[in-house]
């Protein structure tokens, strides 16, 4: 315990701790809606699509800043979603295939651009690859400020538009029927996912950032049947993963923060699957056992009384 406090008294450490926790919180919240809209892989696609966007943003400006990267990644993400939409509308391909194509295409382009950058003379390109593949330790105060703004924005929008997001996730046709601008709301949700993804890339990298969107949401579903609570639990799980990830990696030397955060989220998922109150495996097994027991007992009683009746009938004959 003392170790943890002494660790947290290091200001550098405080920033990383705060940044990862906020990141987990915002990804957990927005991830719920992606998961319920059956777009769990959208986060993955957007993360991979962000790579060329960030590279281009860097090539154009020569500056490493989250704000600029956000714009680049956002534009690339938007292009990717349009691409997926176009493919699913105009071909017979399903969304998963379309996502696969777009994801790998963008990622390939991103790697090519990254190689070009590394061999070019930008002077400050060192560390860009670390940024893209995740290095929470490189987080500084301004990054955490950005993260706080992102987190605040996500929570505000999700609170204000909770009703709308809920309805388009459950029954988009009905939402359209009562006059909600469903396409616009869907784009807004997508934009929020892009924001969460780009904010998370620095900490966990393009490959793993999708895990922070999916895993807490899926885990939270095991604990509740109410959307409002699910979003809160998912946010808490995300934040917890971020916090645990940072503390673990700080206390054991050479452990990377991002991957440990993802592992912590996965562990929470395992716990949820096992111990969820009604949906969990253990709860289900217990329930089945109980049902079986009471059924057998009732059946035996029925059989007994049935046998008695049979005897009586014979006697009557």
């Amino acid at each position: 315990m003392n170790d943890i406090w002494s660790m947290l008294s290091d200001p550098n450490m405080q920033w990383i701790f705060l940044g990862c926790t906020l990141l987990g919180l915002s990804s957990g919240i927005i991830g719920c809606f992606s998961y319920l809209r059956k777009q769990s892989l959208m986060g993955d696609t957007l993360a991979h699509a962000a790579l060329p966007g960030i590279c281009i943003a860097f090539m154009l400006t020569g500056v490493k800043s989250i704000g600029l990267f956000l714009i680049g990644a956002g534009a690339a993400g938007l292009l990717a979603t349009f691409g997926i939409g176009y493919i699913t509308r105009h071909t017979k391909l399903k969304q998963d295939a379309a996502m696969g194509i777009v994801l790998s295409g963008f990622f390939g382009l991103g790697i090519v651009l990254l190689t070009l950058i590394q061999h070019g003379d930008y002077g400050n390109q060192a560390g860009l690859d670390k940024f893209l593949f995740g290095q929470a330790a490189s987080m500084i105060a301004s990054d955490v400020v950005t993260m706080s703004i992102v987190c605040g924005l996500l929570i505000t929008v999700c609170t204000l538009l909770f009703k709308q997001f809920k309805l388009i996730s459950f029954d988009a046709g009905f939402a359209r029927g009562i006059g909600y601008p469903v396409a616009l709301l869907e784009q807004l949700l997508m934009l929020l996912v892009v924001v969460a993804v780009v904010a998370g890339i620095q900490a966990v990298g393009v490959v793993l950032v999708a895990a922070l969107l999916i895993t807490p949401a899926v885990s939270a579903r095991y604990w509740t049947d109410r959307l409002g609570l699910m979003v809160v639990i998912s946010g808490v799980f995300g934040a917890l993963s971020g916090a645990v990830g940072t503390l673990m990696s700080a206390s054991v030397s050479n452990l990377p923060t991002g991957p440990v955060t993802v592992l912590a989220a996965t562990l929470l998922f395992g716990v949820s699957v096992l111990f969820g109150p009604t949906r969990g495996l253990i709860a289900k097994r217990l329930l089945r056992k109980q049902v079986k027991k009471s059924f057998t007992r009732e059946n035996e009683q029925l059989a007994k009384s049935g046998a008695n009746n049979g005897v009586k009938k014979e006697a009557a004959l």
């Binding site: 459950f170 029954d171 959307l227 699910m230």
Partner: peptide, 14 residues
């Protein structure tokens, strides 16, 4: 979907 019957009916008021 994580919601109950009453909640779905409430959507009619949105």
């Amino acid at each position: 979907f994580p919601t109950n019957a009453l909640d779905v009916v409430l959507m009619g008021r949105y």
